[in-house]
């Protein structure tokens, strides 16, 4: 118990230097955290096994990307995760667990860390566009006990997509494979996707295979923020065909 000689420089007392000098303490913390980061995070960038090779994952279309920006802007991630964990109960409820490949074009990813509402990684195709519209306007009109806030202004705010091409250009610097052609046709692609066949649907689908295209409001020439958000929600979790995905081959 007694510790009467703290100044004898035995190894057990060397930590005193950290405790008595805040600058050295800060440097020590930085070193410890960087080692953790270097060892655990850095390899994820070069290890090939980090991201599975799967078919079907494509970059977001301009309209979906605009919807994603609204999702981020409104802070939906504060209540919704987009990450089905490989746990039995989650797979039972939400569907196949999320793959890293499914969010490889997300910058930043929307895995989230809090579930006040349910996980929505696989919400695409679970509801109709009309349900999303009702639900976004006033969640309690369809789910009486819901505590989700309403977002009624989204369907009243015209979508501003003038700058979506610039967003795509930035993402392409971060490694999302947007071609010059995709960036150049961003604005017209957004309109095409939100309209029932307007003549350019086929060439749009060549750039963004399997995207939903329907009259989300585009035919009246009035795409709103709600339309973009719905295009994004309807895509979530639908890109990988899990009938073709081999669980066992990708165990790692």
């Amino acid at each position: 118990m007694a510790n009467l000689t703290p100044h004898k420089p035995s190894l057990w007392h060397r930590h005193a230097i950290f405790e008595k000098n805040s600058i050295i303490l800060i440097i020590g913390i930085l070193v410890a955290i960087s080692i953790g980061g270097l060892v655990e995070v850095l390899p994820l960038f070069y290890l090939k096994s980090t991201i599975e090779t799967v078919e079907g994952v494509r970059p977001y279309s301009p309209l979906e990307l605009a919807g994603r920006n609204i999702y981020v802007r409104e802070g939906c991630y504060n209540c919704h995760s987009q990450m089905v964990r490989p746990l039995r109960d989650e797979v039972e409820r939400y569907g196949h667990y999320s793959l890293a490949a499914e969010s490889m074009y997300d910058h930043p990813f929307q895995w989230g860390s809090k579930r006040t509402g349910p996980d929505i990684a696989r919400v695409g195709g679970k509801y109709s566009d009309d349900w999303h519209r009702d639900h976004l306007r006033n969640p309690r009109s369809v789910v009486p006990a819901s505590i989700m806030p309403g977002y009624p202004w989204l369907e009243q705010t015209p979508l501003n997509i003038a700058h979506i091409g610039e967003d795509m250009a930035v993402l392409s610097v971060e490694g999302v494979p947007y071609s010059q052609e995709m960036i150049a046709s961003a604005v017209s692609d957004a309109k095409t996707q939100g309209s029932a066949d307007d003549g350019s649907t086929a060439s749009f689908l060549k750039r963004y295979p399997k995207a939903i295209t329907r009259d989300l409001g585009g035919n009246g020439g009035k795409l709103t923020e709600a339309d973009a958000l719905i295009a994004y929600l309807q895509l979530l979790g639908t890109q990988v065909d899990f009938k073709l995905y081999d669980d066992k081959a990708n165990i790692r």
């Binding site: 060892v39 850095l42 390899p43 039995r88 797979v91 039972e92 990708n250 165990i251 790692r252």
Partner: peptide
């Protein structure tokens, strides 16, 4: 646990969460 140059240490149990969930679902 520990990432290496081309892979990572698999651990002597050989456990992975993805294998576990496949097993759990089969159990169910």
């Amino acid at each position: 646990a520990i990432p290496l140059a081309t892979s990572f240490t698999k651990g002597v149990f050989g456990w992975t969460s993805r294998e576990q969930v496949v097993k759990d679902l089969e159990g169910l």
